[in-house]
Structure formats: C-alpha cells, structure tokens
Amino acid sequence: MKRFGAILLSLVRSGFRGLQSSPVTSAVAVLTISVALVLGGGFALLVSNMGGVLERFGEELQVVAYLEDGLEPDEARALADSVRTVEGVAAVALVTKDEALRRFRETTGGGALLEGLDQNPLPASVEVRLIEARRTPEGLAVVVSALSGLPGVSELAHGQEWVEGYARFVALVRTTAVGLGIVLGIAALMIVANTIRLAVYAREDEIEIMALVGASRSFVRIPFLIEGTVQGAVGGGLALLLLYTGYLLALPQLEYGLELVLGNVTPHFFGASGALTVVAAGSGLGLLGSATALVGARSGS
C-alpha cells in the first residue's frame, strides 16, 4: 500500500512537472478545451432555459371547449361532467355566458364594446386542465381529439400548434447543440491530442531514460494522462467562468426580452451538477486527448 501510494504520488508529481515544463502548449490545450466547452455549454444553457419555458407552458396548458348557443344550464353541466371522464383531464370548470361576460368586462375595463348589443354574444365554455403526463403536444392532441367529438361542443381552443412549434424549435436547438458539441468536441480532442503528442515528442529523451532505469510502460504514460486530465479540468473551469460572465452580462437583456415575449420567465444558469458536468466534460476531453496522443507514441522500452 505504501509502495502504491509512493508510485501514485510520483506519477502525479511527474504529471504536474510536465505541465510546468511546457506552459505554452498547456495553455493552448486549456484554451482550446475552454472554447469548445463555452460553445457547447452555451447551447446547453440555451436548451435548458428553453426547456424550462416549455415546462411552464405545459403547466398553464388548457383546452377551452366553447358550447353551442342555446344549451340549457343542465345540459351544460352534464357536458362538463362527461368531459371530466375523458382520460387525461385533471379539472373542469364550467364558465357560463354570464361569467364569460363578467370576465370580458374585467379584462377590457368595462366592456364598452358590447354596450350596443341587446343580448350577450359570448358563449358558455368548459375550461379543461390536463394531468401532468398529458401536458405535452402529444398528450394535448389525445385530449383534444376526445373532446372534439362530444355533442354540444361548437369549438375547441388550445395552444397546441404554438406549443408544437415551440417544442420543434427546442428540439432543433437541442439537435444543433448536440451536433455542434460533437464537432467541437472532436476538434478539441484532436488539438489536445496533438498538443500532448508534441509534449511526448519534446520529452522523448526523458521517456527513454525513464524506461532505461526500469520504469514500466504505465509509469511513463500515466503522467501524460494526468497532464491531459488536469488541462481539461482547468479548461472546463475556465469555460464555466466565461459562461457565467457572459450570462451575467447578457442577463438584463435576456430577462427583458423573455418577459416581453413569454411573460414572467426567469432565466437560470447551471446548477451545481451542471457546472460539475462542464468541468467533468473538460477533464474527459483532456484525458481522451492524451490517450489518443499516446496511441502509437514511443513511450517505454
């Protein structure tokens, strides 16, 4: 155990010594990883915020079934009861013609528009809220199709098309983010691999000497993997810092824009697990990059 600890310490020391000995190439690797992660992380942040908006839409999603004129109050109540039995419906509220008029007056500040009319033109309606599992474009479609066949319902109003469009947009951004992430990840991987390969070439003599004094292949290689992982973690940390700075700078504009378009929506940054994921992604990139560099490199015997 003592021997293993001594070897481990020696490997870590050797890895950090490698970083110190080539600060410029290390800085290039760190910057490359952070640029890739800023772009990938920026998209992830965007997707996460858009997903949040979609979730909010879902919470407020409801279907309004306008009833045919001339429907008796009893018939309207019976219709509301039958709507309650439709699968996916969480709550049903009957809005009578009078209630509709009252709401109209409230929202328009007196309802002066309707003053010349001798009868209430607003229809009675049934407001349907959905269970959580149905608060998706697909779930909504199922409920809408069940309601549309009910006798006494003249028209259905719902934001299905809008929600579907938005969900498609979120999916597109998500796919772009994943695609971009893969491309940037591969590019960063190649650059890190080449940077580490340069370090391997620059220290070929050292590697040879280590092998000559009896260092095993892994003893020679592991410091390079440590080097790559540390570069990646630092790159991830830097990316996080840049993203947060960008987020703080953009937040006032972002908040105003979102409020204007979507109402009371608060943008959010990565939580602790998201931030850790960015740093871990950086470490992973660095580790993979150095492992790629060592494939075929002369490191030992």
Binding site: K2, F4, I7, S10, I209, L212
Partner: peptide
C-alpha cells in the same frame, strides 16, 4: 542520459521512485 529538468538528486532518486520507493 540525465534528465535535465530535474536536480541531480532527483536524477539519482528516479531509479528508486519507479519501483515505488517513498
């Protein structure tokens, strides 16, 4: 065949460190 970025003491100690000597 000495490691130029290490001190001479570390150059000598490296033979021991590769076998896990504290």
């Amino acid at each position: 065949k000495l490691l130029n970025r290490l001190t001479i003491e570390d150059n000598v100690a490296v033979s021991l460190e590769v076998v896990g000597t504290p």
